[in-house]
């Protein structure tokens, strides 16, 4: 795994590129999380200062949105759709299976409410880059086995 840039440097370069955008806070938080994997608490005062906001306001935004993380994620983030269209084809059983399977390991489980793959559920997303449709507990295990083996 490549070494992550130091928190301070990363935050400074994100701020330099974005802080004059109108409504800059969300783009900044996205880019910090994309760079570091999460939004470190120590970055909050710096972001607040750059945008002339209070720390409470920045904290409020980070905690309001499900997408933002304040702690480093697992080696991979596995999002399992828990919404109705996937429920109609066994999504709940899959989500339960996934939660149990990933509980102890080093991959993160996150429920997600719709990936827009509703005609071919149950659907999952791994690290935003990889999508899988018509997933069964068995095919889920095969995917996770491969992720765990590849290190």
């Amino acid at each position: 795994m490549e070494k992550l840039p130091a928190v301070e440097d990363a935050v400074e370069s994100v701020l330099a590129a974005n802080s004059t955008l109108p409504g800059a806070l969300l783009p900044i938080l996205h880019e910090v999380q994309e760079t570091l994997g999460y939004i470190p608490p120590e970055s909050v005062p710096r972001i607040a200062k750059a945008l002339n906001l209070s720390r409470a306001e920045v904290h409020g935004v980070i905690t309001y949105y499900q997408h933002f993380r304040q702690t480093p994620p697992g080696r991979h983030v596995v999002r399992v759709c828990c919404a109705e269209a996937c429920q109609a084809v066994g999504g709940e059983a899959l989500a339960e299976h996934a939660r149990t399977r990933l509980e102890a390991g080093e991959l993160s489980f996150e429920p997600v409410y719709c990936l827009g793959l509703c005609a071919c559920g149950p659907a999952i997303q791994i690290d935003e880059t990889s999508l899988h449709a018509r997933v069964t507990p068995k095919s889920f295990d095969a995917l996770i086995d491969a992720l765990e083996a590849a290190r």
């Binding site: 309001y64 949105y65 933002f68």
Partner: peptide
């Protein structure tokens, strides 16, 4: 602009708040 995993931001005024960088 990217949302951040909030269903209610599909409501138009909540979306405007989000675009302005708020909750």
């Amino acid at each position: 602009r990217k949302g951040a995993g909030s269903y209610v931001c599909g409501e138009e005024t909540a979306m405007l708040e989000s675009l302005e960088g708020k909750r």
